[in-house]
Structure formats: structure tokens, C-alpha cells
Design a protein around this nucleic acid. Structure first.
Length: 931
RNA sequence: GGACGCUUAGCUCAGCUGGUUCAGAGCGCCGCCCUUACAAGGCGGAGGUCGUAGGUUCGAUCCCUACAGCGUCCACCA
């Protein structure tokens, strides 16, 4: 026999089979009109990323679906790739530049981008290499990158189309501005933290009255940009002031008192200064105000800061050029001198800081590009609500709905260098230009001249697009969109998206919008037009994975350093163990507390399977040798490889154990497929685990040992063994999507395999419901229970395994006694019972331990060894338990309303149970007495 | 502040749309075993009034309400 160590060595299988699969092209998908496609696109990991436990879970789940469907005969495409991750990547490169004492500005844009690209070439596929170690069956030949040529073309294409449709526009927007880096930050790039500061209460004189409007602020200097004072519309205290003008101190401006719902009357004085250019709330107040007021009452947005947060020309001369903190001191001082500072109280507030340089970010009004989301969101909302796209777990639909109905426009420009440059050009004007031409020109390439004024001095927009602006096209841009091609027609839409719920808005929602927006133009494989919603949506099912936490319940993150390196885990436990364990631990929609030791479960399981295979193959060798001695036919049948198709097996010499294991196999297969269809994938791991370990190893294998080691003819043994091999083969296939390596390794050993054969392209088991046999399962259950009862007696009375016993059985139902007699060999092997006698009515065994089982009793004469005290204790325990059940059922049955209102069948069942407990109790009590 | 989720054995968690696989698994623990696949194993055992208080129902771990604790997301902190 080939080398077959006692313990499974994951590394050997992993290094052997991954290249084998890849070299045979099993990961590669091709258009195949005879098969149905099944597609998953990977959520592209950042090129800066390294593999985390989150990735392990996410990609294992995808691989499970992909391998399952592939074996079921689908043409299966798992599209891999990576994301350019604008800011993250730019950061990494900037940091390495900083070590050389340089900034990106020292290099200039072009040179800097060269550096980023070369960084990407060198390190950008780290995570992809790591992913392969997990055993993922991605179609690597198709690997894409969000900034490769095709995807960049797709980005430009959609930008231009949406611009032409009026869905992309340029506008002013409050952004999180880092005054040091001179860039806008997205909300998730801002770190919030508490800071001790003051709350300054300032009095604004109200024109034509003696009153003051008292406002409180944490940033007094921004008052120079105030354009209103706001109160809540229902605030009775200030009703009489609404519409009046306030004299803004330190400036010569008059600003109105207006109303807005957002003001909290309970905070401070209930009056708030409005600085629309320097506060997000105030920005929206200003927007709302201007939208509801006529032209004459438009509120200006006065920007008082420059890019470095210094005060600009829109403030009185004396403050110009000051840093905003310096200006704050000055403003406070000046107000105090004017007697307008009512009070200053200490205050703790949250300030946002740049996640890179930790500078306090400034809300800042700037020119940005936007996508108008409302029109896109409408359809995207509908397809989720009507079930064209289903979420698992479903509850995320609510979150999705909430966001989609309150959606704001998407700011897509980023002040970065690394990313897709915005395909917009501005006319700079030249010495001959007479027009004030500022029209943006949207074009994939630099236009020769401005169509409005004919100037040739054109400058491209400096900004790049948000990283998500390429991600939202991922399900079809990776297939070649906007160019029509057979792959796109065939593999789009994809089937399942597996991702985290944290990016439901950033990514999932936007992919749905983009898919609905553009994929109608892709013909179906037969050339007809794509019209139905289900052909336009980018995926049909979205599986939201669990969040992986550490043992303290903290989210695993790079910054906490609490995420184990999956490669270390793979080295220690094996890829299969990691895959199986993490999926086993992750029920749909629940978080997972993960620690490495938990992988022992997966490792032990892999080892268990390994040894089951080892057992079968050792016997196969043994039988081969045996039949070689005998010569003749037996040799041929034993040497015959078991079927590698769905297979049929001999029904000769079918025993209880055989019928039972086949029944269990088929119901497991049936349940397995149902569970995966419902995305209850951790349930699926549980049933395959139980089948393999408990049904197959603990019972079935133990039960066939009697026949394999017994005196039966070699050919009978061969039939028995071949059947066991068949069941094992089927179980390996079931398990293969979860544990690809150990299952492949064993499957290859089970029979002579031709070059290129693989479990990963073998047929997935199909449930044959005719094999599911409840009668057999009941009979087996009776045998198992009886064996367990005997074991229980032996265990409780500390009868060592080496000690064989005889039993005396007593059954009212003769057929039960017959079953035990018939399968005495099982009792011999599994309960160490040598002799079985029947007790005739009226007889009483002496000095025997006893067990009450379904329909009768089993006595174990233990003269000499029996510890009466222990046995009495054991029976008393049994009695107590039975009595408890008996009482509770009797209570139920003596309740009239239960008997009259509960369904008849339920009542009947309870009565039956009551009788069973009654007879058990009688027997137990009698046996106790006898002692 | 809004939305959602969680609370079951010492630990980590299952339990799919109310009544036999309803009280489960793995780890840990206790006892007996190196029985010729596996000590990464086998057999047996102990451990829980299923967060608290009400309600619906003949019947609640499961459905409803409130509360407590934990957590996630969103908004906000003038």
C-alpha cells in the first residue's frame, strides 16, 4: 500500500492537490451552452491587504458554493481580483516615501504614480497568494484589477453616460477637510475622539431691540462666517424674534433669525448660529432654507478659511491670515472686550481627526462631483423588496430600505492621485480667448480644443474617483463590459454575492443600481434582449457573513493586532481544519468568537476521516491478499475499483447496518442539499460531521468489523467492504466543498484513478429517497438503544471493557427479542456480550444488574463483581428521571382543557408516553426491590 | 436619539416559522480503556427552572410586551 501514516498530514495533501487541480484546468470556466452557468464574483480584496480571518470565512463560503455547484454539473465561474484601494494604497506608498524623507509632491504626480504601480507589482498580489493556500477554486486565468485597462474603460464609460443623462454633476459640498494633507476625507477616514474644550456663550445684539440672541459654540472663530441664527419653529420663547435681524459682532453684517427643525430647544439657549460653509448641519440648514425661500432671501455660504485652515479675505482685515486657532483666541478676546461674552464653560466634545496625520479636520466647502442617487435608488429598492434579489439573513432588507429611501447624493471625487482620474477637462482660456469659458468637457481622452471657445489650453480635473466608483461595476466590468462578448452574455448575472453587512451601502446597493442601469444592453446568450429584472440584477442572492471577533468579543482588526495570521493557522492545523471550523462556527447572521484552538475540532475531524479511510484501505489490501490466495473470481471483484460515478452498489448480503447506513446517507444528502439551498451552511457542516463521525465511524464501521474479521467467505467480505467504500466515497463528496484537500487525497486512494480524475469534478451525491427507510432506522435505533443501555450499566458499574458478559433478555414483544438474537454479533462486538438468553415468564435472575429498554428488560448477571450499592444508586437515578417525566405527562393529561383542545394525535401520543413510563417505572421498582 | 441583533451546560455556540430526534453539540471536567482505523481516539458519566417580569395559548427556549445587560449599524453632539 502507498504510504499511509497514522495521522493526517495536511501539508502533503495541500501541496499535492492544489497544483493538480489548477494544472488540469478545473478552476477555469468556459461558456458552455450545454450547462447552466453559476457565477460568483469575489469581493475584491485591497491590494494593500493581507489575509484575515474575515477573508477566510468569506472565501470559504464562496468556495463551498462554487465547489458544490461545480460538482452538481454547473459551469462554475468564481471571478477573482483585487481592488486598487485609493487612499489605503496611496498611504502605504507615501509612508515608504516618508522614510526617504520625501513627500509625493517632491516626486510629482507622474513619478509618484510610477512608484505606486511598482509597489503594486511587487506586493499587490500578496493576498491572492494567501487565498490560494486556503484552497479556493477561483478562475485565476481571469483575475482582474480595478485599475486594469478594461475596468478603467468601464469606469470612464459609466461616468460619461451618467453625466450625459444628468446623473452626475459638480457642486459645492461640505467635506471633511484635512488642513495639513489638503485633501478631503470620507466619513470613515475620520477618527472621532473626545476632547476637552470650552463652550463659549456669545451674545448677538438683535437689531431694533435691547435683546440679545445668546448662542453657544465650540468654535467661536466660525462666527465670522455666520449667515443666520436659527431656532426651532415650535419654540415659543423665540417666536417673536423670528424674522428679525441680528447684528453679527466683529463684522458689519446683519443676519436673519430663521427656524429649522434640527435645532434642539433643550440644548443651550435653544438658539444656534448658522455657518453653512463650515459645519455640516449648518450646510443642510442653509440648503433647506434656500430651497424654501425665494430668490430675494437666499442665504449666502460664506467661506472664511483657506485650504490650510487660515482665515481668508472674507473676514475683517485684522483676522486675515491667522490660523483658525489663533483667530479663535483673538475673537474670544475681542468679544470679551465688547462685553459680548456671556460665559465660558468647560465642555467635552467629539472632534474628528485625520486618520493619517491626526490633524483636526475642518468641515469645508469645496467643489466636488456627485452622482444623483434618487433615480438610481428607486429601481434598486424595488428589486430587493419584490424578492428579485434575496438577502440572507433577510433582516438586512430593512436596513437596506431605510438607507435607500433616505439616500443622499454620492460624492465621488477624491483629492488623491492614485485612482481613476476624473474624465473631465476644463478650458483654461488662452491669450486669444475672449470668453469666460468654464464649461467642463467630459471625455475619455483629452479634447483638442474647447468646443465653446476653441481654446486649446485644457486642463484635466485633478481629482480621482472614489474607489467604490469602480467597485460598483465589478459584476459586469470583470466580464468585459462595456464590450459585448459571449462571457458577459453567459455568466451575467452572477448568482450569489458573499460579503459583509458593513458594506451593504458602499458596495452592495451601488452594484444593484449600476447593474440595473446598464446591463439591459447586454444581449442574452441567445441574442435576445435582456428585459426581465432577474436578468439585470447583478446577483440573485446576497449572503451576509458573520463578523469574526476575538475571544474578548472585539472585532478582529489590523489596528488591534488581534487577528491571527491564517497562514500560521493553516500551517498548524491545515487548511481543511481552518475552513471547516470557521464555517462550523458561523451560523447565518451571527457573529463568531474565534480563537485558534477551536481549529482542533476541524483538525480532529480531518484526522478521523483520514483514519476511517485508512481502515477501509487496510481491509481492502487484506482482502486482496486473501482472495489472491484463493485465486479465482474473488480476486477480480475485490480489485475492481468502486464506481466513480454516482454509482450503484450491490444489494447482496444487505444487513441491518447496511440498510441503515444507506438510509442515513441518503437522508443526509437530501438534507445537505436543502440546507445549502437555504444558505444554512453551518447546519450543513453539522450534519455531515455527525454522519461521518457518529453514524459512519462509531456505528457502521464498528458493525461491519464483525463480518470483515469473521469467518464469512471472502466474496461476502468483498461485497461488504465495497459497500462501505461506496458509502465513504459518497460522504467524501458531500464533504469535499468544505474540506477539499483531505477528501481529494482519500478519494484518490480509494480506487485506481486515471490521470486527471478528481473528486472536485465528480458527481455530487443525489438523494435517492427510496433508500430512506424509516422502518430500518427504527429497528437500528432499538439496537443502538439496547447496546447503549448495556454499555451504561457496564460503565456505571465500572465493568472493564475486557470483561465479557452475558445477558438475559425479557420482552413482551417477541419480535424485539428476535431482533436481538438476530444481531447478536453486534452485541458481541459493541457491548462485549458473549451469550444471550431468554428469560421465561416468572423467572427471576439473581445477582443481576438490569436495564429497562423499549418494550422489555435486559439483565446482566454480574455475580461477584456487581456492586449492589452502585447498582441501586443507578436504578434510583433512573426511577427519579422516569418519575419526573411520568408526573409531568400525567399532569398534562389530567388537565381537561389540554385533552379537549389539543389535537387528538398529540393527546394520543402523550397517553402512549405515559404508559411507557408507567411500565418502565414498574420494572425499575421491581428490579430495585430484588436487589 | 433611531434601526437591528444577541442573552441556552464551566467555556464557545446549535436549536430551521409553539407539543419525541426539546433540552443538544464541541471543548473542558469525572470514571474505565493503548479493544489490530484513529489517544487528534473509544465507552460511560456529571453539569442548564433556555437573561428578568408579565402576557397570548390547553401547552412557550420558541410568539407578544416591558425591563436589564451586551453588541452592530446609522444619525447627532451647536
Amino acid at each position: 500500500m502507498a504510504e499511509f501514516p497514522k495521522a493526517y498530514i495536511p501539508k502533503d495533501a495541500e501541496e499535492r492537490w492544489y497544483p493538480y487541480w489548477e494544472n488540469h484546468g478545473y478552476f477555469h470556466a468556459k461558456v458552455n451552452a450545454k450547462k447552466k452557468p453559476y457565477t460568483i464574483v469575489i469581493p475584491p480584496p485591497n491590494i494593500t491587504g493581507i489575509l484575515t480571518m474575515g477573508h477566510v470565512l468569506n472565501n470559504t463560503i464562496q468556495d463551498v458554493f462554487i465547489r458544490w455547484k461545480r460538482m452538481q454539473g454547473f459551469e462554475t465561474l468564481w471571478m477573482p481580483g483585487t481592488d486598487h484601494a485609493g487612499i489605503a494604497t496611496q498611504n502605504v506608498v507615501e509612508k515608504s516615501l516618508a522614510k526617504e524623507g520625501k513627500s509625493r509632491h517632491d516626486l510629482g504626480r507622474e513619478e509618484f504614480l510610477k512608484r505606486v504601480w511598482s509597489w503594486k507589482e511587487q506586493y499587490g498580489s500578496t493576498i491572492i497568494r494567501q487565498l490560494r493556500r486556503l484552497g479556493t477554486s477561483c478562475d485565476w486565468e481571469r483575475e482582474r484589477f480595478t485599475m486594469d485597462e478594461g475596468l478603467s474603460a468601464a469606469v470612464q464609460e459609466i461616468f460619461i453616460r451618467l453625466y450625459d443623462k444628468g446623473l452626475i454633476y459638480r457642486g459645492k459640498y461640505i467635506v471633511n477637510w484635512c488642513p495639513k494633507d489638503h485633501t478631503a476625507l470620507s466619513d470613515d477616514e475620520v477618527n472621532y475622539g473626545e476632547q476637552n474644550t470650552n463652550l463659549w456663550h456669545i451674545k448677538y445684539p438683535i437689531k431694533d431691540t435691547k435683546e440679545f440672541a445668546v448662542i453657544a459654540t465650540t468654535r467661536p472663530e466660525t462666527m465670522l462666517g455666520d449667515t443666520a441664527v436659527a431656532v426651532h419653529p415650535k419654540d415659543e420663547r423665540y417666536k417673536h424674534l423670528v424674522g428679525k435681524m441680528v447684528l453679527l459682532p466683529l463684522t458689519n453684517r446683519e443676519i436673519p433669525i430663521i427656524t429649522d427643525e434640527f435645532v434642539d430647544p433643550a440644548f443651550g439657549t435653544g438658539m444656534v448660529k448658522v455657518t453653512p460653509a463650515h459645519d455640516p448641519n449648518d450646510y443642510w440648514v442653509g440648503q433647506r432654507h434656500n430651497a424654501s425661500m425665494g430668490q430675494r432671501h437666499q442665504m449666502p455660504f460664506i467661506n472664511i478659511l483657506d485650504e490650510s485652515a487660515r482665515l481668508n479675505e472674507n473676514v475683517p482685515q485684522k483676522y486675515q491670515g491667522m490660523d483658525h486657532l489663533e483667530a479663535r483666541k483673538q475673537v474670544v478676546k475681542d468679544l470679551e472686550e465688547l462685553g459680548l461674552m456671556l460665559k465660558i464653560e468647560p465642555y467635552v466634545n467629539n472632534v474628528g481627526r485625520c486618520y493619517r496625520c491626526d490633524s483636526v479636520i475642518q468641515p469645508y466647502l469645496s467643489d466636488q462631483w456627485f452622482v444623483k442617487m434618487k433615480p438610481l435608488a428607486e429601481q434598486a429598492l424595488k428589486v430587493v423588496e419584490d424578492g428579485t434579489i434575496r438577502f440572507y439573513p433577510e433582516r438586512w432588507v430593512k436596513t437596506y430600505e431605510h438607507w435607500m429611501t433616505n439616500i443622499r447624493d454620492w460624492c465621488i471625487s477624491r483629492q488623491l492621485w492614485w485612482g481613476h482620474r476624473i474624465p473631465v477637462w476644463y478650458c483654461e482660456g488662452d491669450e486669444f480667448c475672449t470668453l469666460e469659458c468654464k464649461q467642463p468637457l467630459v471625455s475619455k481622452t483629452k479634447p483638442e480644443k474647447c468646443p465653446h471657445c476653441n481654446c486649446t489650453e485644457l486642463r484635466q480635473d485633478e481629482d480621482v474617483l472614489d474607489t467604490w466608483f469602480s467597485s460598483w461595476l465589478w459584476p459586469f466590468s470583470t466580464l468585459g463590459w462595456p464590450h459585448d462578448n459571449p462571457d458577459l452574455r453567459y455568466f451575467y448575472p452572477t448568482d450569489t454575492l458573499v460579503t459583509g453587512p458593513d458594506i451593504i451601502f458602499f458596495w452592495v446597493a451601488r452594484m444593484i443600481m449600476a447593474g440595473l442601469e446598464v446591463t439591459g444592453e447586454i444581449p442574452l446568450p441567445d441574442g435576445s434582449q435582456r428585459k426581465r429584472k432577474e436578468d439585470l440584477v447583478p446577483f440573485k442572492h446576497v449572503y451576509f457573513t458573520s463578523i469574526i471577533r476575538d475571544v474578548k468579543g472585539r472585532k478582529m482588526s489590523k489596528s488591534l493586532g488581534n487577528s491571527p495570521d491564517p497562514l500560521d493557522v493553516i500551517a498548524e492545523y491545515g487548511a481543511d481544519a481552518l475552513r471547516f471550523t470557521i464555517v462550523y462556527l458561523a451560523p447565518l447572521g451571527q457573529d463568531v468568537m474565534y480563537s485558534n484552538e477551536k481549529c482542533e475540532m476541524g483538525r480532529n475531524f480531518a484526522n478521523k476521516i483520514w483514519n476511517a479511510g485508512r481502515f477501509l484501505l487496510m481491509n481492502k489490501e487484506q482482502l486482496k491478499a486473501e482472495s489472491a490466495e484463493n485465486g479465482g473470481q474473488a480476486a477480480r471483484s475485490a480489485g475492481k475499483p468502486i464506481s466513480s460515478g454516482t454509482g450503484t452498489i450491490s444489494d447482496a448480503h444487505l444487513d441491518l447496518a447496511d440498510r441503515w447506513i444507506l438510509s442515513r446517507l441518503h437522508s443526509t444528502v437530501d438534507e445537505f442539499n436543502t440546507l445549502l439551498d437555504k444558505f444554512e451552511i453551518n447546519q450543513a457542516t453539522k450534519i455531515i460531521y455527525d454522519f461521518m463521525w457518529h453514524d459512519f465511524c462509531d456505528w457502521y464501521v464498528e458493525m461491519i468489523k464483525g463480518r470483515l474479521y469473521g469467518s464469512e467467505p471472502t466474496e461476502v467480505k468483498e461485497v461488504v467492504l465495497n459497500r462501505a467504500l461506496y458509502v465513504f466515497d459518497q460522504a467524501l463528496r458531500l464533504l469535499h466543498p468544505f474540506m477539499p484537500f483531505v477528501t481529494e487525497d482519500l478519494w484518490q486512494r480509494l480506487a485506481e484513478r486515471a490521470e486527471g480524475e478528481s473528486i472536485m469534478v465528480s458527481d455530487f451525491p443525489a438523494a435517492d429517497t427510496k433508500r430512506i427507510d424509516t422502518k430500518t432506522e427504527l429497528e437500528m435505533r432499538f439496537v443502538q438503544n439496547t447496546i447503549e443501555s448495556i454499555r451504561n450499566v457496564r460503565g456505571e458499574l465500572s465493568v472493564p471493557p475486557s470483561k465479557e458478559v452475558s445477558i438475559i433478555i425479557h420482552f413482551a414483544d417477541k419480535s424485539k427479542a428476535e431482533v436481538i438474537q438476530k444481531y447478536r454479533s453486534y452485541f458481541q462486538r459493541l457491548a462485549r456480550v458473549t451469550n444471550i438468553e431468554q428469560l421465561t415468564d416468572g423467572q427471576k435472575p439473581k445477582q443481576a444488574a438490569s436495564a429497562v429498554v423499549e418494550g422489555g428488560e435486559v439483565f446482566i448477571p454480574l455475580e461477584g463483581i456487581i456492586d449492589l450499592g452502585a447498582e441501586r444508586e443507578r436504578i434510583e437515578k433512573e426511577i427519579a428521571h422516569n418519575q419526573k417525566m411520568f408526573d409531568s405527562i400525567q399532569g398534562k393529561l389530567s388537565n381537561d382543557s389540554f385533552v379537549s383542545k389539543a389535537p387528538q394525535a398529540v393527546v394520543e401520543k402523550e397517553r402512549e408516553k405515559l404508559e411507557n413510563f408507567r411500565t418502565s417505572l414498574e420494572k425499575l421498582k421491581k428490579n430495585l426491590e430484588r436487589l
